[in-house]
């Protein structure tokens, strides 16, 4: 959520203007990343202390190839290149996409959210 949007939202909450029946806007890529990825993957470029690899510059990166992480043999040998179709397949069901992977993750997102998150992730420089 952009800062100005969050400020407007907070004001609305404080003024009691946010009706319970108001349809919430779909969660954006940044929100989805924060809830679903951030604990294990940073948006930096260098390895940090998170358990999974940093996700900056993900577009066109070969899966399981950057230094500093203990990837599964399955991911490293997959030859996958991270683009929208591969990322969508991976996030939707990692075990089906690349069996014996090391990412112990069950995706809680809807298909639409996964699409939005994937597109957003691949735009991160």
């Amino acid at each position: 959520m952009r800062l100005w949007a969050r400020a407007v939202y907070l004001s609305a909450v404080q003024l009691g203007l946010l009706s319970a029946s108001l349809q919430a806007a779909p969660l954006n890529g940044e929100q989805l990343y924060d809830v679903a990825c951030n604990a294990c993957h940073s948006l930096g470029t260098a390895p940090d202390r998170r358990v999974g690899p940093a996700l900056s510059g993900l577009l066109n990166r070969q899966a399981g190839t950057i230094d500093g992480y203990q990837f599964s043999e399955a991911l490293s040998a997959s030859g996958w290149i991270w683009r929208l179709p591969t990322l969508l397949a991976w996030l939707t069901d990692p075990d089906a996409a690349i069996p014996n992977n090391a990412m112990n993750y069950v995706n809680p997102l809807t298909a639409e959210e996964t699409q939005r998150l994937s597109e957003w992730l691949l735009r991160q420089p």
């Binding site: 959520m1 939202y9 946010l18 919430a24 806007a25 969660l27 929100q31 809830v35 679903a36 604990a39 112990n104 993750y105 069950v106 809680p108 997102l109």
Partner: peptide, 26 residues
């Protein structure tokens, strides 16, 4: 929790519950 049990499962479940609320109210 879905993928984990124990402490990590607890943390995972907190993410999912927050996500469910944000879908409705964010």
């Amino acid at each position: 929790a879905e993928a984990y049990r124990g402490m990590e499962g607890a943390m995972e479940s907190g993410e999912r519950a927050a996500l469910e609320i944000m879908r409705v109210l964010a």
